[in-house]
Amino acid sequence: MSRTLEASEIHKYFGGVKAVQGVSLTLETARIIGLIGPNGSGKSTLLNVIAGIEKPTKGTVTVDGRRVDGWPAHRMVELGVAKTHQIPKPFLGMTCRENVAVAMMYGSRREGEPASALEESRRILAMVGLDRRADAPASNLTVQERKRLEFARVLATGAGLVLLDEIFAGLSPDELRDAIALFARVQKEQGFGALVVEHVMRAVMILSDFVVVIEEGRKIAEGSPKEVVEDPAVIEAYLGSEATNVTP
């Protein structure tokens, strides 16, 4: 089933801080949208608004034409929209398998039995390359492993539209190449649509079908990855002239 999420004219203010000021974008099944912009430009905030973690100050979010802005996060998950946390939030006292099982039982799959959810969790952990750590307590994971666990949990919810906040950060060149390949494979298999926030340009370039660039909460460019990285405004605000030398 093909699904469409539309965020239009989203504003989010925190007191005097205008974190997001009128951004619109559309996310569809099987498409990957990259979202880039300088630090503090409002990317995570926009994701939080879409995922129901924050209420928008202004603007609307619809899923398949239905207004959903202001819905709490757990209802958005039921609807099939789930998000990873930029700073991972694993359930520290639980094993990786149990972490994933929670998502499995409370996400849109509504798997009712712990035993089968735990069993299925293994498969999902294998998908993201964490199978070796399946029975390790989440507190023993490194930061990168925790990011993978975030991704595994979102997959386990069964969401058809996923919002990913910097899941490729902190990987070595080899690991990054593997992670991108792995992500592309999983995405093809599962067919979800993804809104990907990322500073690792290599991942953005390879994976995105379309890229949106924001600065200070406003959209400054959008288009194909190639168009966007050649846009002088984007180079000025975000990439920097030397960028291609240091952060491929």
Binding site: A169, G240, A243, V246, T247
Partner: peptide
């Protein structure tokens, strides 16, 4: 980690 490309350089 987590810094924009321009800032990284």
């Amino acid at each position: 980690l987590g810094l924009a490309p321009k800032l990284v350089s």
